[in-house]
Design a binder for these strands. Structure first.
Length: 423
DNA sequence: TCTGGGGTCCTAGGACCC
DNA sequence: TCTGGGGTCCTAGGACCC
């Protein structure tokens, strides 16, 4: 039987920021979500000071200052680039690899009695640290769900040298007895509550729970988790990523928006961003979903959220055309008198580009497709908004704030780090 | 004043068909 | 007074993940 390994980058966003600011080693650091909204990554020192995942930035302001915590806005160009360096190193190890998220990958390691899989994993940790500079932890176990648990143990116990293997039954059960049910992959807040009401608090109790009851209460997904806790793999490696089903682009605004004009600019801008992704993946979309909302935390000021889906007569990847429909959708749901905090669009019914359509309407005209190719090239070279549809607006006063963003050290020539010598 | 963004999967229930 | 059964498809909403 093969061994699943979960390779998990430690405090990934923080580690990325530290790579170019080595003086921040051993110092508390946090990274904020888009629009500088919440804390979404914390160094161990920041965790120890009590800063919680997902906690709003403005509520932590005073405490962050008092403890002299370094604060960064999120810099996805940097994180994405470092992620792909880690992943390509893994892909070169000749194992089966599944890239699970920006900072995690599963490996399937062959079982062989004369092979020390733990030593191999330790070696891999070292290699990644040396070659990319990002610290990782690795969990080894007979199922993905157990490997997840193993990796969190590896992270918490420095004595493990970055690796934890859950192998023999006794060790697995001891570990599960000390793991709260809420810490299991796939068990969220709602399920935790249901389990608690049923007297199930630990992973071991969950593993031994009545499977019919689990199936009824937590659906087939919960049952899979339980079986995986028992050491029987239910979730296999996903070698090729399945084709996208939707592409979303949405942002919170710097300040609430009240005018139709500003919302139009935002929706046109988000549509353009999503359309670039669409074309990049050689896809077209058959429907576009537009949504907007006022602040959901301030319902006393009058809450309003709405959305509309528009189906296209034929699939498209053409920014002006998609923008046209998106704005039509916006028109239908916009109501005057509200303070909008966020809006976005979603591209749906995605299909492969160039699929010959057996339909009265042929796809986009050739010239239009060429125009989009040219536009993407120019924007890639000169920056995202060099060429855009007029509706997107020029000054974008509504766009999100990112006050503490680090430079795009690795992906932008203008922002390469320089050494010494001042500016 | 200020609370992220981008995804997937599952289920229940309604519409519709014969 | 009595109002089938079985199937598919679609959608909205819930739940979860990082």
């Amino acid at each position: 039987m093969k061994t699943f390994a979960l390779v998990d980058c430690n405090n990934f966003y923080v580690s990325c920021e530290r790579l170019f600011r080595p003086e921040l080693q051993n110092r508390p650091v946090v990274v904020l979500s888009n629009n500088d909204g919440c804390i979404i990554a914390r160094s161990n020192e920041a965790k120890a000071l009590g800063f919680a995942m997902g906690s709003p930035y403005f509520k932590n302001l005073a405490l962050l200052r008092r403890h002299k915590v370094s604060v960064f806005s999120s810099n996805y160009a940097l994180y994405g680039d470092l992620s792909s360096r880690v992943m390509s190193l893994l892909l070169h190890q000749e194992n089966e690899v599944e890239i699970y998220s920006i900072d995690e990958a599963f490996l399937a390691l062959p079982a062989s009695p004369n092979w020390d899989v733990t030593a191999y994993a330790r070696d891999l940790c070292k290699k990644i640290k040396q070659w990319v500079g990002i610290p990782v932890s690795i969990g080894l176990a007979p199922t993905k769900t157990l490997a997840k648990i193993a990796s969190t143990i590896a992270k918490k116990q420095p004595a493990q040298q970055g690796v934890c293997r859950l192998h023999d039954q006794q060790k697995i059960d001891n570990t599960l007895a000390q793991t709260p049910a809420s810490a299991i992959w796939g068990i969220g807040r709602r399920s935790t509550k249901k389990l608690q009401q049923h007297g199930i608090h630990t992973a071991l109790q969950l593993k031994e729970a009545d499977q019919d009851w689990i199936r009824k209460t937590l659906t087939i997904t919960g049952l899979r988790t339980v079986i995986e806790l028992g050491g029987m793999p239910c979730l296999d490696m996903e070698k090729a990523p399945p084709p996208r089903k939707s592409i979303v682009s949405s942002r919170s605004f710097r300040r609430p928006i009240t005018t139709h004009q500003h919302l139009k600019e935002a929706i046109a801008t988000y549509t353009a961003i999503a359309a670039v992704k669409l074309r990049h993946q050689k896809l077209r979309c058959g429907a576009i979903h537009v949504f907007l909302t006022t602040n959901r935390f301030q319902k006393e000021k009058g809450f309003y959220a709405n959305s509309q889906t528009i189906t296209l007569a034929s699939p498209s990847g053409d920014t002006p055309r998609l923008t046209h429909y998106a704005l039509q959708g916006l028109q239908a749901i916009f109501k005057k008198g509200y303070r909008y905090s966020k809006a976005g669009i979603m591209l749906l019914n995605l299909s492969k580009e160039g699929h010959r359509q057996l339909h009265l309407f042929r796809g986009e005209k050739k010239e239009r497709r060429e125009l989009m190719v040219a536009m993407d090239k120019i924007n890639q070279q000169w920056g995202r908004h060099t060429l855009q549809v007029a509706a997107s607006g020029l000054n974008k006063s509504w766009s999100m704030s990112q006050e503490y963003k680090s430079p795009a050290y690795t992906t932008n020539w203008q922002e390469l780090p320089h050494t010494g010598g001042g500016k």
